[in-house]
Design a protein around this nucleic acid. Structure first.
Lengths: 337, 337
DNA sequence: GTCCAAACTGGAAGCGCTTCCAGCGATGTT
DNA sequence: AACATCGCTGGAAGCGCTTCCAGTTTGGAC
C-alpha cells in the first residue's frame, strides 16, 4: 500500500455539466441563493448526490475572502505553562461554541520568537478570519501583532498595555472581594493575601478585590506576598508571610495552585487548616478538590470564557459590534475555610 | 472605533508592476525558483520590502493544492476527557515540531455527531493537508472517516479495529513488563493489576505486559480488575481487588490516575504503601509526583509522541514513507514501590 | 394580442497565486 | 561565421469557486 494521496474530488464544473446547467446555476443551488427554478435545483442536487460533490474549501475561500478558520493564540514562555488545565478548559469552551458555526479552530502556541513570527505571518497572509488571544502578561508582543494585523480580535482577559475594545473576562475583582468578605465573616482579621504577578491584570484585579474588601470592613490589608500563580510560587510566598506575620489567621490566595503550595507550607509549619488558618483560593479547576484539606475557592467558568470569546469573535467577523463581557464568579465552600 | 476590518494587502501583480517585471518573474523570486537574474531579484525584493508584501495564503493554497494546515483530531465523548494533561502534552509536542515547518495546527475535538461530520467535511473539502488521530477506543468512527478521506494520516497509538500503516506509540507492552518485573524483583508475588479498558489497544498492551512478566518469572497473574484510566475507576477497581484478594502485596496500575485512586482506597483500608502493598503506575504526567506517597511509575514521553507524529505526517505529506515508531518507556522510582 | 415586470439563466470577470512554455538574447562551440 | 546551448523572460492557462450583469423566458395584467 502506497502513501495515501488525496483522491481527486469532482469540481463544480463537472457537477454543472452533469446536471446540464451552467456553473453559476450550480453555485446558486449550493449556496441556497435565490433565482433558482425547481427543475434546476433538483437536477443539481441529484448530480451532487450522485457524484459525492463537496465544494473545495480553498477555492471558496479565495472567492469569498473568508477562510472559515479562526485562531486561538496562547502566549507562553514555558511550554509547561500550557499544560495548565485552564487552557484545556478554554479550548473545550471554544470548540463547543464553534460547533454551532462553520468555523474551525487553529491553535497557535506562540512562545518563541519563531512562534510569534509564524503567527504574524499567518495573520498578515490572511490565513484566518479572526483571532482570540489568551494569557497576556505585562505588555505581551502578541497584542501588537494582533493590532497591526487589522483582523477581528477578541481578548480573553484584559492585557495591561492597553484597553481592548472586545474582551471577555471573569469577574476577578468581585471574586476576590467575595473571598475576602467570606474570611472576614468568619471573624478573621489578620488576613493576608498571596497575590498573582502585578504584571498581569488578573493579578492586580484580584489583589484590589482583597484590599477593597478589607478596607470596606474597616480592616487594614494585613500583608501581601507576590507569587506567580504556581504551586512553588505559592509555597515560597507562604514562607515569607509566615516569617513576617506569624500571627496571620487567614489567607486569600489568588490561585488554587498557589493555595495548594501555601497549604503544604502551613501544614509543615504545624498550623492546622482551617482551625488556625483559613485558606481561600481562586479558580476551581480541579486541583481545589484534591488538596488536603479540599479548598474553599472562588469558581470561575473557564469553559464559559472560551464560549463567550468565540461567540463574540463570530459576531465581530459578521460585522457586528458586540459588547464586552464580564463573567460572574462564585464562592465554593469546601473545608479549608 | 469600528470593528477592525481586514486592510487590503498588496498583491503580487502590484509588486511586479512596481518592480517593472512580470508577475511570473516576481513569483519566481518569492519562491526562490531558478532562472532569475540578479537584477530582477533585487528589483522584486526592493518592491516587496517597500510595499510590505506578503503572499496571500489562500491564493497560494489554491494554486499549489496545499493548504499548509494539518489537523489534530481528538475523539472524546466527554469534553472533560480532553482536560487530561495528556492532550496538552501532545499538543505541546506537535506545536514544537510544527515550528520547524511552515505548517499550522488545526485542532478538532470531534466528540458529538456534529463534531464528527464537521471533521468529515473538513477532510473531504480538502481543508487540511494531513491528519493526526488521537485517543481512539474500540472501533472509533474517526478511523473510518480518516480512511475514507484519503489524506495522509498518522495515528497516535494504534486503534483496535485495524492496523494503520503509520502510527507512533509508547512501548506500552515493554513498560508494563518493566513495572511488573520491578515489583517481582522486590520480592512481591501476589501482584495484581488494575488494567485499562480492554476496548483500547493501550489497555490491552499494558495488561499483556503484566501477564508476560508474571509468567516469565514463573508466577501466575494474580488478579485483574478493569478500570477506565480515571481516578474514580481506579478506586473502584481497587475496592474490588481488595475484597477478592485481601492478601495482595503489590499493584501495577495501567495509569497514574488509576494508581492515585487505588492509593486512596489502600490508605483508607489501613494498608501502608509501600510497606504492605507496593504500587506502580503508568504515564508520569505530573500527577505521579503529587500523590501521597509519590508514585513509582512508568514514564512515557507524551511530548515526544506529539513530535514524532508530526514529523511522520510531514514526511507523508512530502510523499515519503517513513516507518512507524515505538517510543521507549522507562521506570521512574519514587516512594510507592 | 400586446406589454411589462419578475424570475431565471449562462457568460464572463474576477479572487491572487503558480507554472508551463515559447521566445529571446547572450554565451560557447566547431 | 554559423550553429547549438543556455539562462532568463513574460504571456497565458490554470487552481475551483462566487458574483455581477446582460439577456432570455415566463406569467400576469390590461
Amino acid at each position: 500500500m502506497a502513501a495515501q494521496r488525496p483522491r481527486r474530488q469532482p469540481t463544480l464544473d463537472e457537477v454543472a455539466e452533469r446536471a446540464g446547467v451552467s456553473r453559476s446555476a450550480a453555485s446558486r443551488v449550493i449556496n441556497k441563493a435565490p433565482h433558482v427554478s425547481r427543475a434546476t435545483r433538483d437536477a443539481v442536487e441529484r448530480a451532487i448526490k450522485e457524484m459525492g460533490y463537496l465544494p473545495n474549501r480553498t477555492a471558496r475561500a479565495l472567492a469569498t475572502q473568508q477562510t472559515g478558520i479562526v485562531a486561538l493564540a496562547v502566549s507562553h514562555d514555558d511550554p509547561e505553562l500550557f499544560a495548565d488545565p485552564f487552557f484545556a478548559q478554554v479550548i473545550v469552551g471554544v470548540s463547543a461554541a464553534l460547533e454551532e458555526t462553520d468555523l474551525h479552530l487553529l491553535l497557535c502556541l506562540a512562545s518563541s520568537g519563531r512562534g510569534r513570527s509564524r503567527l504574524t505571518n499567518l495573520l498578515h497572509t490572511r490565513g484566518v478570519d479572526g483571532i482570540m488571544l489568551m494569557a497576556l502578561h505585562g505588555d505581551d508582543p502578541l497584542t501588537h501583532i494582533a493590532r497591526r494585523a487589522g483582523l477581528p480580535t477578541v481578548y480573553g482577559g484584559r492585557p495591561l498595555n492597553f484597553e481592548p475594545q472586545w474582551y471577555v473576562e471573569s469577574d476577578n475583582l468581585g471574586g476576590a472581594r467575595l473571598a475576602t468578605e467570606y474570611l472576614i465573616s468568619l471573624g478573621r482579621t489578620r488576613i493576608v493575601t498571596i497575590a498573582g504577578p502585578m504584571s498581569t491584570d488578573v493579578g492586580r484585579a484580584r489583589h484590589r478585590g482583597y484590599r477593597e474588601a478589607m478596607i470596606m470592613a474597616g480592616l487594614t490589608p494585613y500583608a501581601t506576598a507576590e507569587g506567580d500563580f504556581t504551586e512553588t510560587g505559592g509555597a515560597a510566598a507562604m514562607k515569607t508571610l509566615l516569617d513576617s506575620h506569624p500571627d496571620l489567621d487567614a489567607i486569600f490566595a489568588a490561585s488554587d495552585n498557589m493555595a495548594a503550595g501555601a497549604l503544604r507550607v502551613l501544614l509543615d509549619a504545624g498550623r492546622s487548616v482551617p482551625a488556625d488558618v483559613a485558606v481561600v483560593g481562586f479558580d476551581d479547576l480541579g486541583i481545589a478538590e484534591r488538596t488536603d484539606p479540599p479548598l474553599t475557592t472562588v469558581h470561575q467558568s473557564v469553559q464559559a470564557l472560551g464560549k463567550e470569546m468565540t461567540r463574540m469573535l463570530v459576531e465581530l467577523i459578521a460585522g457586528h459590534e458586540p459588547p464586552s463581557i464580564i463573567l460572574p464568579t462564585k464562592l465554593v465552600l469546601r473545608d479549608s475555610a
